[in-house]
């Protein structure tokens, strides 16, 4: 009797073990499968245009079936770097405010409010960008920039053209708003790790609040903040919908921030279902592969930084 019961326990325990283990192993399995499938699908494009050749060619011509990813790669790099330039200082400022300045009672509400920015779906950002931000950009902000910074030598080149609001600048602005909560929450967590007695002893020798932040908190949590910024970059690189609404899907490399452009994700979103030849779709898969690999590298780096900052 007893041993029959225990045998059934053992069997059920084994079943549970295998079931849970199989579910967990799905994660690495899918990652490997995803990489393999993307590589396999990219092979025709790789063969025809070359591993590097594809990335440096600016031709994107579905009619002649000649494809190069340089314009999409360029667009992605410009939009995400600009977004990070806007987002990183703001996010760090927010984290400083939450951890050092904000009254205790408001701390958690404020954190939640900032984190809510991350839960708004990206399609809402895109639509808001198209209907609200783009008109404001084209009628107020961009003409203002042209009148001021646009007059400067060299710098002026990036503010050339008719400000229509559907452009690199608007896309970067929206992307920066979306990226802020990711960086801010990582930075906040790193700031919180600064030992209390370090902060107190700095105050003890008469440092001002800003001096404590600058000389103690920021240096102490530097690695964590870098990790947060890279995480933001990793997130921004793959963002599709928020950017797709306001970038114009143009496969040309433009210097002006008032020009239309395209990123890897927006190219995929706009053209995947329209691709009518094998080489076209393979080129799109190759873009997806580039995106997959680069975001994976960025996110692993962020993860590495965050694990180092916790030690």
């Amino acid at each position: 009797m007893k041993s029959a019961k225990n045998n059934s326990f053992e069997l059920k325990n084994k079943t549970t073990l295998y079931l849970t283990a199989a579910s967990a192993y799905i994660i690495p399995l899918i990652l490997i499968l995803m990489l393999a499938v993307l590589i396999y699908e990219s092979i025709p494009a790789l063969k025809k245009f070359g591993l590097i050749g594809f990335m440096i060619s600016t031709t994107w011509n579905p009619v002649k079936n000649v494809f190069g990813g340089a314009s999409a790669v360029y667009g992605t790099v410009v939009v995400t770097s600009l977004a990070l330039i806007f987002a990183a200082p703001t996010a760090v400022g927010i984290a400083v405010f939450i951890t050092q300045i904000c009254p205790k009672q408001l701390k958690s509400s404020f954190s939640t409010a900032i984190e809510l920015l991350a839960s708004i779906p990206s399609i809402i950002y895109g639509m808001w960008g198209l209907f609200v931000l783009a008109p404001i950009m084209s009628s107020h902000i961009e003409p203002f920039l042209q009148k001021t910074l646009g007059k400067l030598p060299f710098v002026g080149l990036v503010f050339k053209g008719t400000p229509i609001g559907i452009d690199l600048l608007t896309a970067s602005t929206i992307l920066s708003i979306m990226t802020i909560p990711f960086i801010a929450s990582v930075a906040r967590d790193s700031f919180e790790l600064t030992p209390k007695n370090l902060i107190e002893s700095a105050y003890g020798i008469g440092a001002t609040k800003w001096e404590v932040i600058k000389d103690i908190v920021l240096p102490y949590s530097k690695i964590g903040v870098y990790g947060g910024i890279i995480l933001g970059l990793g997130r921004a690189v793959g963002e599709t919908m928020a950017v797709a609404f306001v970038l114009g899907n143009n496969h040309k490399i433009v210097l002006s921030l008032f020009g239309t452009s395209s990123t890897i994700p927006t190219t995929l979103a706009n053209e995947f279902t329209e691709a009518d030849s094998d080489i076209y779709i393979s080129s799109l898969f190759y873009l997806a592969l580039i995106l997959f690999v680069s975001s994976f590298i960025l996110l692993s780096t962020a993860k590495y930084f965050s694990s180092r900052s916790k030690k």
């Binding site: 967990a24 990652l31 997130r235 793959g238 599709t240 995929l268 975001s295 996110l299």
Partner: peptide
């Protein structure tokens, strides 16, 4: 388990459009 947990964090942040292309292919 630690490795899978880390990989899972990474998998959760893969651009969702890439997931779409993967499912499209498969």
């Amino acid at each position: 388990a630690k490795l899978i947990s880390t990989l899972s964090d990474l998998a959760g942040s893969i651009p969702s459009i890439v997931v779409g292309t993967f499912i499209y292919a498969v």
